[in-house]
């Protein structure tokens, strides 16, 4: 059918099977997640592929892509460190924690580290208000919670990921 479909045929069929025929368009968001799994953002050429699979216009797919914050249109670091700075977390020091993490990584909020591994962003509530400060790690098609953080714990996690990536490269 097209490049995206051919690449993930089994998985796409499994996604389409979740919805009744009348609700084929429901597959748009799962397909956008699939399209950005490898690179962390949705490549422009995937829009037409998704449109063809679910039978809507490319413009409609692009509108959905632009509306939701978890879909990305630009490349960033391989891992996104998303720190909640909403009210309940801010009451537990998350704004200061964000600053410290950025300082340790040598970047400003919204920027990516020189090795291309980490982008830090301040985000809205992630339903972990009782375990603030906290962040979410997006990358490699996964989203993980890290709670009850301070800058030391977070930097250990960062170093672990760096070691993992270095080991991958050697292998």
């Amino acid at each position: 059918m097209n490049k995206l479909y051919n690449k993930y045929e089994k998985e796409i069929q499994e996604i389409l099977d979740r919805y009744p025929e009348v609700g084929k368009r429901s597959a748009v968001m799962p397909l956008l997640f699939l399209a950005q799994r490898e690179t962390g953002y949705v490549p422009p050429e995937a829009l037409a592929d998704i449109a063809e699979i679910v039978g809507i216009s490319t413009t409609d797919v692009a509108a959905v892509l632009g509306f939701y914050t978890l879909f990305h249109t630009e490349p960033a670091g391989r891992y996104r460190i998303l720190i909640c700075t909403d009210l309940p977390c801010a009451l537990r020091g998350s704004e200061g924690y964000l600053k410290q993490v950025c300082e340790k990584l040598g970047i400003q909020e919204g920027e990516t580290t020189a090795d291309g591994l980490f982008t830090v962003e301040a985000v809205k509530c992630l339903a972990a208000c009782h375990r603030a400060p906290m962040f979410q790690l997006q990358g490699d098609g996964e989203i993980q919670y890290y709670e009850d953080q301070n800058v030391e714990i977070t930097m250990q996690i960062v170093e672990e990921i760096r070691r993992k990536v270095a080991a991958e490269k050697e292998a």
């Binding site: 429901s26 968001m29 997640f33 509306f67 939701y68 879909f71």
Partner: peptide
């Protein structure tokens, strides 16, 4: 029953 993920919109 199926799960369906949103994508970051309150």
């Amino acid at each position: 029953i199926n799960t369906h993920l949103g994508a970051g919109a309150y």
